[in-house]
Each structure stands twice: as C-alpha cells, then as structure tokens.
Amino acid sequence: MKLTRRDALVALGGLTAGVAVSGTTASVADVADDTETAAVGTEARVDAATAIAAVVYPSAVTAEREFVETFVFGRSEPRPGHFDGLASAIDDVEQFARARFGGPTASLSSRERRRLLDDIGAYAAHANPNGTSAERVRHYLVNDLLYALVTHPKGGELFGVPNPPGYPGGTERYQRGPTR
C-alpha cells in the first residue's frame, strides 16, 4: 500500500491546524493550505529521506516522496532546532553514501541503503539528538520516519492497530472488538 500526500494531510489535520479533520476532503484542503514544508526540506533531502523510508518501512508500505515531504517536513517542529537536526542527519547520511557507495542515497539499491544504515550504525544506535552521528540519524531521520508510519492507519495495520494513537480515527472504533 502507498502512503500519499493526502494520507499525510489527513494525519496532520489536527496536528498542524489545531482542528479535527476526520479525513474529509474539504478539511484536507484546508490543511493543505495551512501546511508548509520546512525550509530545510530541500529537494535533495526529501529524496534522501524518501530513499531511507523505503528500507526503514516494511516492504508492504511504500512511502511516496510527497508523503515524506508533507508529513516529515510539514509537521509542526516538535522541539526548536529539530528540523536543523534532521537536515544535519540527512546530510551525514548523504555524505556517507557518496563516500562509501559513490552516489546519493536515492541512487542506491535497497541492499546498499540497508548497508548504508547498518554501516552508519543507525540500526543499533540509541536515539539521541545530541549524540554521535549514528544516534542523531536514528533520532532525527529514522525515528521521524517511524513516527510518520506508526501514527498512520496504513502503518498501524501492519502491527494490528488501524486507529493508532496520534491519528484522528474517530470515537466509534474503540468500541469495536478485534478485527483480525
């Protein structure tokens, strides 16, 4: 399944605009008008983050570039300086990709991207915004992408939660029993 820009806008509904959305088209349009990509979300960085999402996310989910751009770079900045940290982490990944594999992350195969993350140490690193390069990549890039995934129903369904915390899924679903 694909994660699209619209998915990101629905997820961001209340998160950016301070209003409930419930996925209605009109409200999504309102959110779209209200959502801006952070200045650090350059084309190259969005490409790199999207390429990393492809190996961070299970293969059952494909995050379109617009989803990453809209959600990761368009959400409210959780802490001051977070987007700068994200940009720096992505730049570290890009620098490593060029030095180790000879090209930008987006040009690498899935296997090379996994190797890239592994060589950086992002799999085993403990997320730390002020830590080593590996710890910062984990906190800013990998976990930002995971946050976008696990707070969206399409990601939630992969671990059995179609209405995950952080998503405006309404107040009817919690009354239902198991759906699998």
Binding site: T16, R75, S76, E77, P78, N143, Y147
Partner: peptide, 15 residues
C-alpha cells in the same frame, strides 16, 4: 499550534 508538538513529545519514547 503547540499542542501538536506536545502530542509528538508524548507519543515518541525518544523525547
């Protein structure tokens, strides 16, 4: 608008 920041801080274990 700050509320969405707090939601992310609340939900993510690395904050």
């Amino acid at each position: 608008r700050d509320r969405s920041r707090w939601a992310e801080l609340w939900l993510r274990p690395d904050f």
